[in-house]
Amino acid sequence: MTAIAKTKRPELDEGGMGYLQSLPRRVVTVYLPLLVFVIVLLFPFYWMTITAVKPNLEMTDYANFNPFWVVHPTLEHIRYLLFDTSYPGWLLNTVIISTAATFLSLLAAVFAAYAIERLRFSGARQVGLAVFLAYLVPPSILFIPLSVMVFNLGLYDTPFALILTYPTFLIPFCTWLLMGYFRSIPFELEECALIDGASRWQILTKIVLPLSVPGLISAGIFAFTLSWNEFIYALTFIQSSENKTVPVGVLTELVRSDVYEWGALMAGALIGSLPVVVLYSFFVEHYVSSMTGAVKE
């Protein structure tokens, strides 16, 4: 009993029976595996970063330099990337395309989610199910017919090809997420407003939307991240170098068949990841809770 009392620290109280475990046991069953997980999950990012600032000489000379560290950090790769390649243009394209697709999808999704969840028109349940099924249709089976459509519509190699096709996976996702969010807003508020004579439009814009700002933010962040990360449509529908997005540009333009510019590649991957990581770190609580909330139904 005394051993248990000794390991029981005040801050462990809320955690149920955690205090029943002794410290050495916790080290083996919790801290050690956690450490391994964190190292494995974060190592590629470390490796990306260290390669991006490593001079070419150190990068390939493992005998004289410890590869895990960098002796003379250099910004040469980043300079090359920003000034000697089309990288800034790709960044700009990705920002424009992601923002436009996110905005379009959020707009459509807000109305759709409100209609399905709150107007409850006849067939709303079936439409809700259809939206869910639409989310399960993967881009890998749509890109060939979509490329035919994009070509016939004259959108090939323009940003509009991506702005109009990204909503195919963004709208179902955002609608689904917002439906869950709207469900958490009490019906009574809307009934009050209806009795006060508000129209459906006023209810949506003055009551429901202001209350669902957190939901809108997380749907927006998700949509932006998904568009930023999209690859197969951008690879298929965009041809010219100046119209490419970051993931496609880095892979297809920075990789030359003869020599791999690993430093520039890693710098490109790093800088291309930064915007979503920064966005994510600002809203991480929203992100985690809405992600888990969406899955919880």
């Binding site: 997980f37 964190v38 999950l41 974060l42 590629p44 990012f45 490796w47 990306m48 991240t225 930023w228 990360n229 690859f231 970051v246 993931p247 496609v248 880095v250 892979l251 590649l265 890693m266 490109g268 991957a269 790093l270 291309g272 990841s273 979503v276 990581v277 994510y280 770190s281 991480v284 992100y287 985690v288």
Partner: peptide, 17 residues
């Protein structure tokens, strides 16, 4: 928060790493 990082970063870019 940090455990989620691999999922947030664009797949293509982490695949390049």
């Amino acid at each position: 928060a940090i455990v989620l990082l691999p999922w947030v970063v664009p797949t293509v870019l982490s695949a390049i790493a």
